[in-house]
Design a protein around this nucleic acid. Structure first.
Lengths: 213, 213, 213, 213
DNA sequence: CATGAATGAGTATTCATTCAT
DNA sequence: AATGAATGAATACTCATTCAT
């Protein structure tokens, strides 16, 4: 905060950082399994292997921990999607590029079901203190998809009048819903089947360059 | 349950029915905004303009009120979607039929935002007592869409290997997400624009009977 | 709050009022004996013979209970002092009238030591939420004394240039201090000795109509 | 520890003394504003600009810090009052001598408001561990006043039956109350006006050697 | 039918104190 | 000498539920 004192290189992962990480992991697991209200601070602390007071020392309260959690997890989702976008140099068609992004979304969600459930639960709760955070990062994630769609429109691979912003939101909702339904109702199905169906859908959904009304 | 049939046994719409309705409305709004856990019985009663005890007199408890709520709303959603399916005799192509179902979904959601938010928030929280209810009726709603897809597969209007169950879930998630994003972020946009984009997307899907892998 | 609905004569002392009174009494005793911080809500509830939740139902919190307490007690002090002022018709000299007010102050304090201690402890804690209340009513109490002094100045019974406001504050502090010291250090002394000394002091303190500098 | 004074035994004013002083000042201010119970060790440390552990390193605990505080400040008050008593040889009337003591009291209080607030707030809270300290030194301070009154009684300058101990307590309470009211409510008034009013009042007392009952 | 005061088990939160660095 | 992360016992507070009116 004070530019004149250049801070003697504070150790980034000291004891504190390790404790925060432990608490994060405990909290994600428990809250996503039981919901925010049903998860007690005692449980979180016990699972993290620290004393209850430590939660308050590090986060200030249950609400703040939850907010930090949302931000942390949701940032990771956006990052994952961004990483899935093929590098500019690579010779991959926009169609395959989009499929790749959706695929990475499914993988992420199946690895972080908990988080995905929270994300959907909080997505439209506008009066919560962490709504802004969730919304902003959700927009970022959708932005990655929208970006791919824009590229496709540019190259004439889909109808030119497509509202790519709405379509991005649609694809996002589709992926999350399918992925969660899969994990919840038919976890035994191989992930490839999910990928394939989603690819088919996306392919069809936006694959009509000039379908007549 | 219907006031036009004067049953002597139980006066269906006396003070009681009015009270229940007030409580329903208050509960849907509050819970969709804050979540189930964060909404107190006091708040619901206050918003409904009745005393707290009245909630217990009429529903037996917070959980029961919530369960009744879910069942009520979600049944109406399934009914609405079913009504949108063109009667067998009518000469409507499957393309238009599907579009009509999705359209009615959007209309329903924009009229019952709160309920839709709830539906998404609770859809995958498996260890709640009302999970079975939500799931069952959600399946019913998705079933209407799946039915249309099946009809299309039968008539060779889309790829024969489509997993219509997964696809139904995908379209459901797509519609709900788009509709809620619209209501939350850009409520000023005319509903037609939403319809059009969704129709385009569904159109694309239907239009690809045999897109090569 | 709503003038158009003239409130159908709410019963002033129903169950609720009785509960509040019990809590008041329990709280005054305990807090004055142990201090605010050392007194727990559990103790107060137990002593009042009600459940802990009842404290919150009736007052909203420990702080609010304390604030209500201060207002209640301190209002009674002001009332007591006012009542001690001889009625206008009675043939009592201002000197005796003042002595009477001070005397009633001592009696009140010895009957409500607890409250008096709180009053002094909070008198100059300007950043507490209840400071305004304490201050206002303290001013009222001092006002009764100041009123007597003004009467004396008017009749030429004391020096005309006396700052009666400051002098009122001085006499108030004198009375409270002496009374509390008495109760704390020499409770065995008869109250009359205290009265007498205070009367002497007041007599002398302001009894010099024209003492040369 | 202190490079400039290479004392082998105990460096009196090294870093440690400075730290203790900082903590003293922070503690007096905060406690006088909020009370002992409402002031946390965190706050004190933060205001003093040191880490929390430092409080414990230097004083052993919150209670000990407070006790040290009270003793330190209250000793200074007694000393100040004693110094105000004119030396035996000096030719000063008892009237002026008493006025001088009260005057020095007002000056001290206006310079150490926080301490004075504490002194009044804790004076009658008998079951605290530091009660003995506060009481003893308070008695010392009052003793200076009482001493003056005794001298006056001896010389026949006031009524012979005056309970000088009670009267001392009365004057003490009067001075502290007036001084704090002044600082809190009308700090803009010149100190001389306060002095004058107090002198007038004390004057009156002294000037009544034999006021008839 | 409806009310709202009362309840108390369950939970979040505070904060003086410790101790390894 | 000083630090600040961690602690956990003590405590304040919440809120679904009950029940007498």
């Amino acid at each position: 905060m004070n530019a004149s004192t250049p801070e003697p290189a504070k150790p980034v992962s000291g004891r504190r950082e390790a404790t925060r990480r432990k608490l994060f992991e405990a909290a994600v697991t428990l809250i996503s399994e039981q919901g925010y209200g049903a998860t007690t601070v005692d449980e979180i602390a016990e699972r993290a292997g620290v004393a209850k007071g430590t939660v308050y020392y590090n986060f200030g309260g249950k609400n703040e921990l939850y907010a930090a959690l949302m931000e942390w997890g949701v940032t990771r989702l956006a990052d994952t999607l961004r990483e899935a976008v093929p590098a500019a140099g690579q010779d991959v068609g926009p169609r395959e590029a989009l499929a790749e992004v959706l695929r990475s979304g499914v993988v992420f969600i199946s690895a972080h079901e908990a988080l995905a459930r929270l994300l959907m639960a909080e997505a439209w709760r506008t009066n919560q203190s962490w709504y802004a955070t969730v919304r902003q990062i959700r927009t970022e994630a959708i932005g990655v998809i929208t970006g791919q769609l824009d590229a496709m429109v540019e190259r004439g691979l889909t109808r030119p009048d497509l509202d790519t912003s709405l379509a991005g939101s649609a694809l996002f909702g589709m992926v999350v819903t399918v992925a969660l339904d899969w994990r919840t109702l038919q976890p035994e199905r191989p992930v490839e089947e999910i990928h394939t169906t989603l690819a088919h859908m996306a392919d069809g959904l936006i694959g009509s360059p000039a379908s007549p009304q």
